[in-house]
Design a protein around this nucleic acid. Structure first.
Ligand SMILES: NC(=O)c1ccc[n+]([C@@H]2O[C@H](COP(=O)([O-])OP(=O)(O)OC[C@H]3O[C@@H](n4cnc5c(N)ncnc54)[C@H](O)[C@@H]3O)[C@@H](O)[C@H]2O)c1
Ligand SMILES: NC(=O)c1ccc[n+]([C@@H]2O[C@H](COP(=O)([O-])OP(=O)(O)OC[C@H]3O[C@@H](n4cnc5c(N)ncnc54)[C@H](O)[C@@H]3O)[C@@H](O)[C@H]2O)c1
Lengths: 224, 224
DNA sequence: GCGAGATTGTGAACCGTTTCACAAATCGCG
DNA sequence: CGCGATTTGTGAAACGGTTCACAATCTCGC
């Protein structure tokens, strides 16, 4: 284990391992080998061990991994060992699904405040929270200290909201709007795009050959 | 352009290019160079050209790409040129956000039927649809012929629903439940996991060194 | 205490994707 | 028509992540 950059796919898988481990813990299992993790996660044992090797040594040769021990370690790595407050912007359809989602709590991710710019919505209850004015976001986060924000507003408002989130001190953004966000280098953005996912499935859903090819698509000045 | 396997990241980017092109089309722009696509998409011009090269030649040297022409080509590649019907299972929070989402329509993705197993919900309206009994899914899809299904049910029901979807003729599944699905080889699964996304952000949101390391985590029989 | 069996951690090989760099193609203009 | 400016398409190189394979480590039972 050297002090090296951790691949993002590794971090994503860490969250999967954590889920598997929590399930096992629930079931009263004390120890798991990388082989068994493979069974439950669909990720190869070698990959699992390599992933962990970025952070240290957590297993015992000949035995495997202590389930509660590894849970604690992965939680620490992912900063899920202490409560992680999150700002949600956009009290619409997506926002509504998110505030009520109980699984976040199990990972100590807590939506600590909801913001909108619609005066009709501001002040209304939203899950267990009350919708607040987006104009007050910086002020509110001075108390909360959230480092993660979720953008669930229409695409045309996303950049503006991203700027506000960054100004409020957020360094990680989960973006549901179909737009490329421009943010300072120190801010990490992850885009969630159902359309993209469905497009990939759409491509694979049909096996027929494509009708696009050289001589048809290239051509005269009427072009493609 | 040889007949080769297309990387999944390429397909994902294709959906992004399509969005950029549709925006440009909306704005009345007739032609775009790979350089300009880079500006709008955040994806490098070289990457863009390489991505397209898997499918043919679509541009004119010295000019660029015809916006409407390329839109048509990418839509054909992604099978978004004809209406793509989709089955949604789970009339809950996520399902609710999806049925009302207008952007799907712009890509000819249409949620053609919604299913649930809750007798209280079956028969109720859901968006413009009526919630149907999951038990009838195969029968219903005999008419619809959808090849894509969305799983928006609790994790413990996801595998069972996946089996039903496959039996109903679906070859692509978008899975929102936090579980690994076992499906036949010809079926493609894409998982959407907000938890995973947030975990990655959580990791990056703090720059402090980890407290995990060799001598602490490895050790005596009290172990990790 | 020791040998058999199990399992980890990791350098090295492998493989697929991204980036680079340039020849070939097209356009506009004099 | 020809030349300079522009931009494409694509082999080849660079890069980064995954897989492999094995020495090192640990447990258990005798
Ligand atoms: N609903 C879906 O299934 C779905 C799927 C994929 C992507 N998305 C994307 O997610 C985003 C949210 O979708 P939704 O369906 O929840 O939309 P929505 O219209 O239901 O909700 C958007 C909310 O954002 C608020 N808002 C608008 N501008 C704002 C601003 N400047 N500051 C603060 N709040 C503002 C609105 O008042 C509204 O409450 C959109 O970008 C959409 O494209 C949604
Ligand atoms: N809500 C969120 O923000 C969120 C976030 C991430 C992941 N998810 C995941 O998405 C999935 C759906 O979440 P949700 O919040 O919409 O849940 P939900 O409880 O609101 O809705 C689930 C729906 O599925 C139906 N259902 C249950 N078993 C079924 C079966 N066997 N066949 C058909 N229908 C069945 C239920 O009747 C219910 O209507 C869950 O797996 C959840 O973990 C949700």
């Amino acid at each position: 284990m050297t002090e090296t950059h951790v691949p993002i796919p590794t971090l994503e898988r860490l969250a999967i391992y954590l889920r598997v481990l929590l399930d096992a813990h629930e079931a009263g299992i004390q120890t798991l080998s990388s082989q068994e993790i493979e069974q439950h996660s669909g990720i190869s044992a070698a990959q699992f061990r390599k992933d962990l090797s970025y952070f240290g040594e957590f297993g015992k040769p000949g035995v495997g991994y202590s389930v509660p021990g590894l849970i604690q370690c992965i939680e620490r790595i992912l900063r899920l060992d202490a409560e992680q407050p999150i700002l949600l912007v956009g009290a619409g359809n997506i926002g509504s699904a998110l505030v009520g989602y109980p699984n976040f709590q199990a990972h100590r991710l807590r939506i600590a405040a909801v913001f909108d710019n619609n005066f009709v919505k501001i002040g209304r209850p939203f899950g267990e929270l009350v919708i607040q004015d987006i104009a007050r976001i910086k002020e509110v986060n001075a108390d909360i200290g959230a480092r993660i924000g979720i953008i669930a507003v229409p695409a045309h408002a996303a950049q503006e909201v991203a700027d506000l989130l960054v100004e409020a001190g957020v360094t990680g953004i989960l973006n549901f709007a179909p737009t490329i966000l421009r943010v300072p280098k120190h801010v990490h953005v992850r885009n969630v795009s159902f359309l993209q996912e469905l497009a990939v499935l759409s491509y694979h859903a049909t096996e027929d050959a494509l009708c696009v090819n050289g001589q048809v698509t290239r051509g005269g000045k009427d072009g493609i």
